[in-house]
Design a protein around this nucleic acid. Sequence first.
DNA 1: ATGAAAGCGCTAACAA
DNA 2: TTGTTAGCGCTTTCAT
Lengths: 337, 337
Amino acid sequence: MRPPKTGPADGRKSDSLTMADLAKVAGVSAITVSRALRDSPLVNPETRARIAEIARQYGYAFNVSARNLRLRRSMTVAVVVEMKPTLERQMSGPYPLDLLGGITQELTSSGYSVLLTSLQGGALSHVQAADGVILLGQGAHEDAMHEVQGWGRPMVVWGAVSRHESHVVVGSDNRRGGALAAERFLALGRSRPVFLGDPAHAEFAERLEGFAGTLSKYGITPFTPMVSSFTVTAGAEAVHALLAQHPQIDALFAASDLLAIGAIRALIEHGRRVPDDVSVIGYDDTPLGATYVPPLSSVHQNFIDAGVLLARKIRTLIEGQPATSETLPTHLVLRAT
Amino acid sequence: MRPPKTGPADGRKSDSLTMADLAKVAGVSAITVSRALRDSPLVNPETRARIAEIARQYGYAFNVSARNLRLRRSMTVAVVVEMKPTLERQMSGPYPLDLLGGITQELTSSGYSVLLTSLQGGALSHVQAADGVILLGQGAHEDAMHEVQGWGRPMVVWGAVSRHESHVVVGSDNRRGGALAAERFLALGRSRPVFLGDPAHAEFAERLEGFAGTLSKYGITPFTPMVSSFTVTAGAEAVHALLAQHPQIDALFAASDLLAIGAIRALIEHGRRVPDDVSVIGYDDTPLGATYVPPLSSVHQNFIDAGVLLARKIRTLIEGQPATSETLPTHLVLRAT
DNA sequence: ATGAAAGCGCTAACAA
DNA sequence: TTGTTAGCGCTTTCAT
């Protein structure tokens, strides 16, 4: 038995006003309210306006759960992010936020909700409810990828495009990014370049491929010292070790700005001048790099656009249409290094 | 009429298996499945285990919408973030991500979903469906605050605690942060300090209060030049202008690391040595500041803890219990400046 | 252009 | 410990 409904006039705050209630007030049926509120062309414009006004006036709040149950979809996209409080994470800096911004903007404006999850705890049940899943940073989520794919749910991944043919990946053009750095070094006449970054990360591997591939046309093979993590200190340590063996290096391309900054620090400690003795290019074009002294040259990617694209892809997939992997343009921002 | 259900045995992928289906397989009723899946003590442990196993085996996916409709709550918390692609935003850098990380971690592990919205477009309807709302960065959301409060929905705000008594605010101890900077300068014997930051921002105003309050005990009044935005250039320009009038300054406390870095740049351009001639302290303890040359001293706040606290508060509120505003500890990280 | 009927999948309330 | 009944608020048929 439904409790007696009270209008706003009697002062009691009725916290759940339904379409049926509005219908009663408007003197129509619930389905007409439903249609009116969705701007259906089936309903008389006047009726529609009147109902809209009543809804507004009564503070009606649409019940998303009811619609979702009826429609058998959640109108929700889960975004899985790596948010462990670690300095070693790749998804640090403002980029994930830009990515999230792009995703959210595009998705909310097309009627979807964005569900943020980290997959740390037992968050899987939340993700299961979503109509689609966006994975940010495939590196950390290889297992999550398979899990999600096992559910047969639409999925889009942000990461290295080349690696996995089995699902839709959006990523920036890491190969081109690497090639751009190589071209720059060649133009400067540098002949002993270094690549700094762990190729175990798919995206880094692509950057190295583009870098080494372009250099190889000129018979140059870059040094590729071991780097275990993404931190400033890791970059510095790698360069320290490298200089001991190969003091003659004259150019350095790092897979992230953080590594590049660490490298510059180490270079300077060893008496090398940047960029006079050693040219340095970073990756991601972070504010950190841009405000560093000297301001760091870096390969730029537009994360907001990337987010929008990810969102479009997942929507396409959810709507049952095919989507393909895509690569985003990249360009080199030249600064002091 | 329900379409005939097909088990996984016949090969056809049944995309919506219900509790009733599981019940049929297990030879029990739907409600028993419901209880079993929720680990209700009412159900026989053996039955429960058997049902759990069947659910797993059949790849059952719980229907959140149905539960939410029935329970008349969404088990969802909306997080409203400012994500405009602007350099002037305060919510830049990795902090919002840490904040989001803390929130997500705490909320998902207690059964809630985190809905990310930016309030750019007509995202309000999404937010309305949430059981509670967390506002990140009150500055940009004064209007959103009132809107949400108008709905009578639980709300928690991240920002300056002192300003608004009408709702629950979690923020770091900005006054103490300012006081710490002042104490440091006093200990160094500095007597002509500057505060850099637009006090129109509530949090900045608190930092200034703490700073100026502590200094006033020693009869010192800081310079407070106009600063319009949060960027490096804004910091540099403000200091340029200030030095023209007051060349004798010997300490500078900036409301953000970005401003501090701009300030340092300007100081050096004017021939001042940092920290020999002018001591500088920033705010937020960003990697940007930490890796700067010279490494920037800064007031640190723990954003992950803050996120967790925000999440706890909103949960408390949703559960109908009272919650109070709270202030998080802050400490000064001394580096080279 | 509007309405009536039915049911999406789940769980509280009340039996048994 | 388990089951029956009923209904959360919405929207897709299928009428009118």
